[in-house]
Computed example of a mutant assay.
Amino acid sequence: MRKPLKFFDIAAGRAFTTAEYRVVEVEIRFPHGVERRPMAVAVSPYTGHLCYSFAPRRSEIKAAPLTTYFKE
């Protein structure tokens, strides 16, 4: 069973929590390149619009230390 996530419907001005969502990858463009991030998408029960939320990080993927990103 999926973990329920919280979404916010801007058109209705209300938040809702649901476990019925799908995870998609979204490309975010930065001046230094493109980054892909997982986002959860759910249909709002108030307006029927698609609402996005940051998908939770998978526990099996460990975070890298900050020293990885700094060049010495």
Rank of each mutant, 00 (worst) to 15 (best):
F54I: 04
I61D: 10
A12Y: 08
A12H: 06
P4A: 13
V43L: 03
A42V: 15
R57Y: 13
P4H: 14
R14A: 13
E35T: 11
A55H: 06
M39C: 09
R22E: 07
P31D: 07
S53D: 10
T17A: 15
P31N: 05
E25K: 04
R2W: 04
P65N: 09
E35D: 08
A19C: 05
T47I: 12
L66P: 00
A15H: 11
P45R: 14
R14H: 12
V41N: 02
G33C: 07
T17E: 15
Y52W: 11
R37N: 02
A40E: 01
F8K: 12
P38Q: 06
S59C: 05
S44D: 00
K62N: 00
E60H: 15
P31K: 08
G33A: 10
F30G: 05
Y46F: 02
K71C: 01
P45G: 13
P65E: 12
P45Y: 12
K6C: 02
Y46H: 00
S44R: 00
T18R: 04
V23T: 15
P4Y: 14
F8S: 08
F70A: 14
E20S: 09
R36E: 08
E20F: 08
A15M: 06
E60C: 10
I28Q: 12
H49C: 04
V41M: 02
F54R: 09
A42C: 10
H49A: 11
A40C: 07
E35S: 09
Y69N: 01
A63W: 08
C51P: 01
R22P: 00
F54L: 12
V23Y: 08
H49E: 10
P56H: 14
K6P: 00
R37W: 02
P65M: 08
H32I: 09
C51W: 00
A12P: 01
I61K: 10
Y52N: 05
